[in-house]
Simulated scan of single mutants.
Amino acid sequence: MVRLAAAMALILWASVALGQEGSAPPLVASEAPVLGNGAGADEAMPVLPKADGPTLGAAEVGTEAPYHTDLASLVLKAHPVVQAVMALLALAVMAVLTVLLFKLVEFPLAFARLRRTKEALAAAPGLAAVTGHCPLALASEAAVDEVQALGPAMTADLRRSARERLDLALDRIEAGAVLRLRSGTGLLASIGAVGPFVGLFGTVFGIMNSFLAIAGAKTTSLVVVAPGIAEALLATGIGLVAAIPAVLLYNAIQRRIVVFRHGFADGRAEILARFSRALDQRMEA
């Protein structure tokens, strides 16, 4: 009996030792966390393998390529079509400035000559030709030439025909003077009317380019969209810079032309009055 009990104890000890050697090692909580529902080790989440490549630092994550925000870089990096629109609008701005500088010199000279001619006509005792480059001086010369071209015998029909010929000559002189003063206004009108639409074309193309950049990058980040929108808005701004001064300058020129025509009409009335008196003297003689 004692031998039987010893044999059974030996067999029990051997089975316990063999069971301890074949069991799995305990799970590490840091590598395979156990689910919160109290599941066993067989339901633990798998551990992902570590990447073989270099790990990015915190400062390198989310960094983008630097983009210059000055206007020069914006123009140089714009789309060629938008650059062409900007160049065309820049030429329009230069044209407006050229017309402005020319008119700043032309109108003061025209009004100064008109004033001097009217003073010379007022100082003359009768119908006299006033020399100068003013249209009013040309009108006085035309009146004197018409009186000298008349014959010694004056009739009512000859007087009426002489007045008609002088009116036609003065109309041509006034039309030529006004035409010279209006030079450049057609260009200003075209720039004022077309400039905003040319800038709008650049805006539409720039925004379209932004949408294409979004589709290519597959992201709606402002870094991708902002350059195209910025160049589009710049094209619109240049168009307004060209159109607004052109419209203002066009209106200013038209007002100055009206003032010049009033001054010329005043001098023309004086010349016609003296021409009529000269014809009266011819008929009395």
Rank of each mutant, 00 (worst) to 15 (best):
D52E: 08
M283I: 12
A41E: 06
L187T: 00
A175D: 08
L249S: 01
S73N: 14
G126L: 12
L12K: 10
A213L: 04
A9E: 09
K50N: 11
T219N: 11
G239I: 07
A153N: 12
P26S: 14
G192N: 04
V204M: 02
G19P: 10
G267I: 01
D171S: 10
D167P: 02
L168Q: 11
L127I: 14
L100T: 03
T219Y: 03
L272S: 08
L27H: 15
A269Y: 02
G176W: 04
P26Y: 14
D52C: 05
D145V: 00
D42K: 11
V147T: 00
G151A: 10
P108N: 03
V204I: 07
Q148V: 04
G57R: 03
S30Q: 10
I214V: 11
H79I: 12
R180L: 00
A7V: 13
D171W: 07
E231I: 04
L48F: 12
V82H: 08
I11Q: 08
Q281K: 15
E164W: 12
A235L: 08
T185C: 00
D266Y: 07
A122H: 12
F260Y: 09
Q20D: 09
L200W: 03
L121H: 10
L88Q: 03
S30R: 11
G132N: 13
M94R: 02
V225N: 05
L234C: 09
L222Y: 06
R163M: 10
R159K: 11
A110L: 06
A6Y: 04
L179E: 06
G192C: 05
D145Y: 00
E43Q: 12
A139Q: 09
G176H: 09
A175P: 03
G237V: 08
L249V: 05
G19L: 15
H133P: 08
A232V: 06
A123T: 14
V130A: 09
V85P: 08
V61F: 14
A9G: 10
A269G: 11
A41V: 07
Q254V: 09
A110K: 07
R277M: 13
F211W: 01
F201L: 04
A128D: 15
G22Q: 15
E284A: 15
P196C: 04
A193S: 12
A278Q: 13
F197K: 05
G206H: 01
P26T: 14
V247C: 06
M8Q: 10
A137Q: 05
V96I: 04
L56P: 09
S276L: 10
S221L: 06
A235W: 03
A169G: 08
F260S: 02
L248I: 13
L240G: 08
